[in-house]
Design a protein around this nucleic acid. Sequence first.
DNA 1: TAGCAACTTAGAGCATACTCTAAGTCAAAG
DNA 2: CTTTGACTTAGAGTATGCTCTAAGTTGCTA
Lengths: 112, 112
Amino acid sequence: MKIKEVSEFTGISAHTIRYYEKQGVLELPKKDSSGHRNYSDTDVELINWVACMKNSGMSLRDIKGYVTASMEGRNEDALVALRIHLEKLKEQKKNIDHYIDVTEAKIKRLSN
Amino acid sequence: MKIKEVSEFTGISAHTIRYYEKQGVLELPKKDSSGHRNYSDTDVELINWVACMKNSGMSLRDIKGYVTASMEGRNEDALVALRIHLEKLKEQKKNIDHYIDVTEAKIKRLSN
DNA sequence: TAGCAACTTAGAGCATACTCTAAGTCAAAG
DNA sequence: CTTTGACTTAGAGTATGCTCTAAGTTGCTA
């Protein structure tokens, strides 16, 4: 897959994919004979999961930690990163539930 | 209340409160004889609610919209801002629930 | 073979939201 | 009186995460 196809498939812009590679969040894929990025199915799968983590609010620093552990076969470290993120998501959910309550209450108070 | 007390009460730093005033998110409070900010109970109450909105992820632009409507007595506009924010919170909650599921599934898959 | 789209790089610019610095004023405590 | 600490301002700097630009190469299509 070329970068544009990956971009369309994952919803991350080509600019952003290159940016992630420059930041070390993603590894550079193999290049074809004319120097263009050529992504394997495995690469695309990883980028897709990165998109998911990004959308769920994981920081690039943490995504990089996950990806690096993953690429180096440090499976336990990758899992730890995911578990920490999961805890953050659950915390966020709790906070949002609270803020929904508070905002609903405020709206009710102002509606009189 | 002086700015430091407001800062302690609301959890927003004095720097940030001044920044909000410069950005027009908050109105400048009355100043005492030596030119220091002197916040009324009403001011503090508003800043506290601003802190709540900020913590729940409302952008400064939207908080400014709410505060301005509120200060100008445009109650319906203030309410609309809150209702829009409430919808965003509910959307966020849905997304987070989804990402919790996805992350848990990923963890399970990697745990084998 | 000319044109066009898609690719490449380094690096600049932007949006959001702070966060800090410099230089100075002012009031109360020792 | 002088030191301490909180306050004032304008404005610079930081962090995150893009987003775009410039200048150039490559490869398909008419």
